[in-house]
């Protein structure tokens, strides 16, 4: 029972990461497309930055839960996936530093360096996830190869892009907004985001369903403490998230 509750938590945090983190990663991938000059790119980055800290913590929490509630699954999975995880982390760091420091130095060069870091970092993160998830979908727990893996990975990358466009449509105005809207269909902004968010949430759930988590859960004595503690903390965790979305609900203008 506690194991099931722990698996539900793991799925919840992983889905939260792909919905929220996936949105700002996708928007980062599209930075040069959405913003054609320095001012527009500044606008796109300004649409992402209030959220990226609150978004990436979902992955940190997922990794924490994996090591705490399913330590053997982590010990089994991560070493085999080392090259992809290293690429994921490197892309993540490069992207974060671009977002953190873009406006900390003036001139034209530094913002351009940071924009490149955000774009390349976001593509590296999305690509690493795509490869990793495609492997898990096909039942592999190491760096997978094959035509089916390439196809699935391509679909995951496409989903990141679409989800980023949907996020951009919620956050932007002006020409950057029009560009996102022109390539993502005629449905409403919120409806489009609801669809891409649902697909993003399904990614980790589908991949996780193929992993045998029950055999690798932590001991009952550990889970009986950890799982209720996390459920008890959930309201505070979610309150911070809701406050973030409420505070920065307005669109960013050029």
């Amino acid at each position: 029972m506690t194991e099931t509750l722990a698996a539900v938590l793991l799925g919840f945090f992983a889905a939260g990461y792909f919905v929220l983190g996936g949105a700002d990663i996708g928007a980062g991938m599209l930075l040069p497309f959405l913003g054609r000059d320095g001012g527009e790119r500044r606008q796109v980055v300004a649409a992402i930055v209030p959220f990226f800290l609150a978004d990436e913590v979902w992955l940190v929490a997922t990794a924490g839960l994996l090591i705490g509630a399913f330590p053997d699954a982590e010990a089994r999975l991560l070493p085999g996936l080392l090259p992809l995880v290293v690429a994921l982390l490197a892309g993540w760091i490069v992207r974060d530093m671009g977002l953190w420091t873009r406006n900390r130095a003036g001139g034209r060069v530094w913002p351009a360096v940071c924009d490149t870091a955000v774009t390349l970092g976001s593509w590296t993160v999305a690509g690493s996830w795509a490869w990793l998830l495609a492997g898990l979908f096909t039942g592999s727990t190491s760096v997978a190869r094959g035509a089916d893996v390439v196809l699935l990975a391509g679909l995951v990358v496409a989903l990141f892009v679409l989800h980023g466009l949907a996020f951009a449509r919620l956050r932007l105005t002006g020409r950057a907004y029009e560009r996102a809207r022109a390539v993502s269909g005629g449905a409403g902004d919120r409806a489009t985001f609801a669809v891409t968010a649902t697909l993003a949430a399904l990614l980790p759930v589908a991949a996780g369903a193929r992993l045998d988590l029950t055999g690798s859960a932590a001991d009952g004595a550990t889970l009986d403490l950890l799982v209720p503690a996390v459920y008890a903390m959930l309201p505070l965790l979610l309150a911070g998230q809701v406050l973030t979305w409420w505070t920065f609900r307005e669109r960013v203008t050029a």
Binding site: V60, G64, I67, G68, A75, A218, T222, L226, L237
Partner: peptide, 13 residues
Amino acid sequence: GNVLGASLAMETL
């Protein structure tokens, strides 16, 4: 993992 993993999980969450 039963001890270390749980405290690292508490740290993150």
